[in-house]
Simulated assay, not measured.
Amino acid sequence: MSVAAPIEVSKGDTEAHPEDLLKGLGSAVQGRSLWQIAWLRLRRDKVALGGGAVILLLIAAAVFGPWFAADPLEYNQDLIDPTFQRPLDGWLHSGISADHLLGVEPTTGRDLLARILTGARISLIVAAVATLVSVTIGTVLGGLAGYFGGWVDTVISRAMDVFLAFPLLLFAIALVGVVPGEVLGIKGNGLRVGVLIFVIGFFNWPYIGRIVRGQTLSLREREFIDASRSLGAGHLHIFFREVLPNLVAPIIVYATLLIPTNILFEAALSFLGVGVIPPAPSWGGMLTLAVPTYQNTPFFMIVPGMAIFITVLAFNLLGDGLRDALDPRAR
């Protein structure tokens, strides 16, 4: 029975060198940031991507659509039955034709597609700017309350309670009634849109303020905050460079969920007659005009109602997808 000769191994071969083990791997081993992981998760959520695609399509239609659509204020009385005050042609007397893809309004004959696109521009502007106002105020005040605590937290928290108990709808109706026709050279729908943004944005900040406050209370006890404080960092540096970047994910998620709420609130104010001034189109105002005629022309109520429904649903689906994608505990 033969015995194999021992293999001679030099001392240099037995020493482990980590750089030699990683040599040749190149970029195969790479860390992923939170945003890269979130994007990979979001890509797998087809429902959320569908909601985002609808939102992008809606934004593009609201920005560029009115340039190519008909005049939303042009009357087409020749398309209206003078006896029943409804469109002559189309399914359910909608007035749908090659020139009017979504039909026309009863009694006036104005193009519904043009009015929907123009109303989308107004709703998105009011909702987006009001959300930006709410997020800015809520992030700053909620972050300060959670970071400093003590009397600062007490004052800001009690202010949140006051704003949350405020009858916002009644205040909006009363404010629109007492605002003069011109303020600082702004009048008409420009002033009315500004009032809507102020009411919706300024009085909704406590909702995100409470979320930011709770997150900040947790973050200020973390080790990296203690490390920054031990290195001599001041309160402003810690808040804006350490705390605030870690609040970006929940702020983005809540903002996407706050926008559809603001769209609904703007539509409700327009429905009650305290939104944009007619004949400027708005989704809520179109529903108001559809109420007296829905028995003869139900399609006139369906179009703006579906516009609101699809827009709010798309934002909610995207917000739910972002919440799941940005959750560090999700798999």
Results as ranks from 00 to 15, higher is better:
residue 6 P to R: 14
residue 6 P to S: 10
residue 12 G to E: 15
residue 16 A to G: 01
residue 19 E to C: 03
residue 24 G to R: 11
residue 25 L to S: 11
residue 27 S to W: 10
residue 30 Q to L: 13
residue 31 G to L: 13
residue 40 L to N: 07
residue 45 D to K: 08
residue 46 K to M: 07
residue 47 V to D: 06
residue 51 G to P: 08
residue 51 G to S: 12
residue 65 G to C: 04
residue 68 F to K: 08
residue 69 A to W: 01
residue 74 E to R: 15
residue 77 Q to L: 15
residue 77 Q to H: 11
residue 86 R to H: 02
residue 87 P to F: 03
residue 87 P to E: 06
residue 88 L to A: 11
residue 89 D to I: 10
residue 97 S to A: 11
residue 101 L to C: 01
residue 113 L to D: 01
residue 116 I to G: 00
residue 124 L to Y: 01
residue 124 L to M: 08
residue 128 A to M: 14
residue 130 A to C: 03
residue 133 V to H: 05
residue 134 S to L: 11
residue 135 V to H: 01
residue 137 I to F: 08
residue 137 I to V: 15
residue 139 T to M: 03
residue 139 T to K: 00
residue 143 G to R: 08
residue 145 A to Q: 03
residue 146 G to E: 06
residue 149 G to F: 04
residue 149 G to T: 04
residue 153 D to H: 02
residue 157 S to K: 00
residue 160 M to N: 14
residue 164 L to G: 11
residue 164 L to K: 09
residue 167 P to F: 02
residue 169 L to H: 11
residue 169 L to F: 15
residue 171 F to K: 04
residue 171 F to T: 07
residue 172 A to M: 09
residue 172 A to L: 08
residue 178 V to G: 01
residue 181 G to S: 10
residue 182 E to P: 07
residue 184 L to S: 11
residue 185 G to Q: 05
residue 187 K to L: 03
residue 190 G to M: 06
residue 192 R to T: 10
residue 194 G to W: 05
residue 197 I to P: 06
residue 197 I to M: 15
residue 198 F to P: 00
residue 199 V to G: 08
residue 201 G to R: 02
residue 206 P to M: 12
residue 206 P to L: 08
residue 207 Y to K: 07
residue 209 G to E: 06
residue 215 Q to W: 01
residue 216 T to L: 07
residue 217 L to V: 06
residue 223 E to P: 02
residue 228 S to K: 12
residue 231 L to Y: 14
residue 231 L to G: 07
residue 233 A to G: 11
residue 241 R to F: 10
residue 242 E to D: 14
residue 247 L to S: 04
residue 248 V to I: 14
residue 255 A to K: 07
residue 257 L to E: 04
residue 261 T to D: 10
residue 262 N to T: 10
residue 262 N to K: 11
residue 263 I to K: 04
residue 264 L to W: 05
residue 267 A to Y: 06
residue 269 L to C: 01
residue 272 L to T: 07
residue 273 G to P: 04
residue 277 I to T: 15
residue 277 I to E: 14
residue 278 P to I: 04
residue 281 P to T: 00
residue 286 M to K: 05
residue 289 L to R: 08
residue 290 A to N: 00
residue 298 P to S: 11
residue 302 I to D: 05
residue 303 V to W: 10
residue 304 P to K: 09
residue 308 I to N: 06
residue 311 T to I: 03
residue 312 V to L: 10
residue 315 F to M: 09
residue 316 N to G: 02
residue 318 L to K: 00
residue 319 G to Y: 00
residue 320 D to P: 09
residue 323 R to F: 13
residue 324 D to R: 14
residue 325 A to H: 07
residue 326 L to Q: 04
residue 330 A to N: 14
residue 330 A to F: 11
